[in-house]
Structure formats: C-alpha cells, structure tokens
Amino acid sequence: MLEIKNLHVSIEDDGTEILKGVTLTVNAGEVHAIMGPNGSGKSTLASVLAGRDGYVVTEGSVIYKGVDLLDMAPDKRAREGVFLAFQYPVELPGVSMANFLRQAVNSVREHRNQKVLSAMEFLKLMKEKAQLVQLDPSLKQRAVNEGFSGGEKKRNEIFQLAMLEPTLAILDETDSGLDIDALRVVSEGINSLRSSDRAFVIITHYQRLLDYVIPDFVHVLVDGRIVESGGKELALKLEDQGYDWLKPTESDPITA
C-alpha cells in the first residue's frame, strides 16, 4: 500500500536535512509504530506524507497504492484515503463540526463514487461514530476544536478518522497529553477501526500507547534514519533502555 524508498527531506526555509534516507513498506491491514527521540524526524515524516507545505523532498520516492504520493495535492491525498491525526489539532472558529465534517465526508465519498450523504444520514453517522471515542453528540454544534480540552481534541481526531474511513491512517503523537483514561478511550477507538484493508502508521514517543494498540512492526527513527526495526517487543526494550543504545557512533554505524 505504502512504499517509502530512501526518502530525504529538508526544511524549505533553511535547507536543514531532517530525513536522511527513510525506507519503509506498509501493507494493508498492518499497524506500524514509529518511535524515536525528540527531533528525530517522526513528525516531519507524517507531515511529508500528508503534504504539508514547508518541506522539500530532495531524494527518494513515496508510492501509495501504486502511484506517486508526492505528486498529489494534500486534499487529493486525503480523498485517496490518507488521513493524518494531527499532533496539534487546529481550531476553526465559527465552523461547526457538522458543517466541517459533512463537507469533508462528502468530498471523500464523491471521490470514491459513493452516494453523497443527506443531512439525516450524515447526522446519524456522526452520532454513531462519536460513540466510538465517547464524544458527546452535542459535538456537532461546536466549532471545530474551539474550546475543546486537550483530550477532546485527540478524541476528535480519531472520531474524524472513523468518519472518513481512510485506507492509510497516520497518527502523529496522538497519545501525547492524554491521561490514562483518555488514552484507553482513544486506543479502543483505534482498535475498533483496525481492519484488513486499512493500515496504521502510529508515531509515538512513548511505548505506553502500544500497550493498548498492539503493533505488527516497530521502527526506531534516529536522526532521520530508521535504525532498528522489529516486532512489538522492540517497543518494550526501548521503554526499558531508552534510545541511547541506538544512537549511531562515528565508528560503528548501526544498520537495521
């Protein structure tokens, strides 16, 4: 589904290279966790996959469902099924959740040649999906993320994931700032959305989310490269030993 090959990415403004050759293959139905210390390039990877401005791909390729992902506009990527759960969800004052999501859902459905939902059908769907992450149905009247608590914002991201039914869901530090109860709710939401035709790339600094959402693969990103890959036990080892043992030394480059 997703094939990242030797991806090099720099910051547009100052040319600083953040990703220095990332290679990663994600198949349908798989859950990949990407872990790594602060500043290792995890969020940059998420941003580049979603098509955020401000980055330049200097080398490498990203093929999504057989086509060049990097060639697609961000809204096209979304309609093709790429979803990013934001680390910092953005507030849209005065724009109701219902209005926002109806436009989003219907643009995605139109793209997939599915029937556009009527107002009634849409509200029904919204109510149903909100329950997945225990969001209050009164949510639909509220402005997008405005006045939401930190936990609500994160749950709102997973709720939107459920509404949009993407094929590739990228979760950027969805667990950060969540207390243990909220973490459980979010995790259950994610688990209920796992399916054989949907892949997850979960970016996280801590492994505690992975106690609830069991990944098929864990990759460690250090200084713009994936330095180690393994199964879920790798996450536990990281929890135990930290990242230091993975950091490259000049004489002893570590290969995955």
């Binding site: 990013l84 934001f86 969800p89 849209l92 793209h111």
Partner: peptide, 28 residues
C-alpha cells in the same frame, strides 16, 4: 491561517472550500 487551510485539506476539502468554511465561520 495556513495551518487552518491545511487542516481542512487534510480532510479532503479543497482550498477554496476551506477558505469559504473559515470565512463563513468568521462571519457566523
């Protein structure tokens, strides 16, 4: 905000529709 427009786009909403949404919200 560019971040607002990007947020909308990431949900499949085109740039022009995103601006319409944001402006409409502002005038609500």
């Amino acid at each position: 905000g560019e971040d607002q427009i990007f947020y909308c786009k990431q949900r499949g909403i085109s740039e022009i529709d995103a601006i319409k949404l944001i402006v409409n919200g502002f005038c609500k």
